[in-house]
Amino acid sequence: MELNQIINPANRVYARPALLDDNTMHYCPGCSHGVVHKIIAEIIEEMGLQENTIGVAPVGCAVFAYNYIDVDWVEAAHGRAPALASAIQRLNPEKLVFTYQGDGDLAAIGTAETIHAANRGENIAIIFINNAIYGMTGGQMAPTTLEGQKTATTPYGRRVDLNGYPLNISNLLAQLDGTHYVTRQAVHTAATVRKAKSAIKKAFQNALAGKGTSVVEVVGTCSSGWKMTPDASNKWMEQHMFEKYPLGDLKDAGEIIPKSK
């Protein structure tokens, strides 16, 4: 069969989501943010929620998330997204309100806002991108940076005696009575992308249904910060990140999932 017979609108099985703006993303090649943006745009489109969604963008690489997904957005101060989202949702209870935050934003400077929004059981979805590094400022140590991991501020590797331990914030959030759904996903393969998409969709459905806070952590890469190619970053992530941050549901329907091991 000739290519021009195949490439025909009737045969199209995958296309750029309509809610993803035409702007070329500012992210580095291979960045996980792009994939997560794409699946969020797909979900909002599939759920017919464009008119009913308010996104809260963080400070960090995803500060410009509002340039890409075609819904109303507010750009929060560093770490404060869950506070904004709490008020937005309470004042506009019919809206889907979600935050999009990186590890520095959510688990360092915004720890208090994150934990208290989740503990109040705010009816919001928190999308948390954990790539274990500060990407935007040039690859400094994040709260989630692994022990031994080299960053601009841990040039000889993270030492717990100097820098403390990597913070597993999703496990902490799962312990809170206000969270309904806490899950850890990845987006480095087609299969994991599909799972992550289901997880984010579920988080959005939970928020709209008023079930409390849902948190979807996406373990991602930062090839520029990690100083590896995108493919090598994915492999490094599988080898090192998943040990500290294993994929899977931590809590569902308000129940903590026991460790499978």
């Binding site: 290519l3 195949i6 296309a15 393969t189």
Partner: peptide, 24 residues
């Protein structure tokens, strides 16, 4: 091109959403 099965794995992982997939 002849080996493509239109599985969309490439498009699914593409961070810049620059791949359209067709399948017959």
């Amino acid at each position: 091109a002849e080996a493509c099965i239109g599985c969309a794995a490439c498009a699914t992982v593409c961070p810049d959403a620059c791949i359209e997939v067709y399948r017959v």
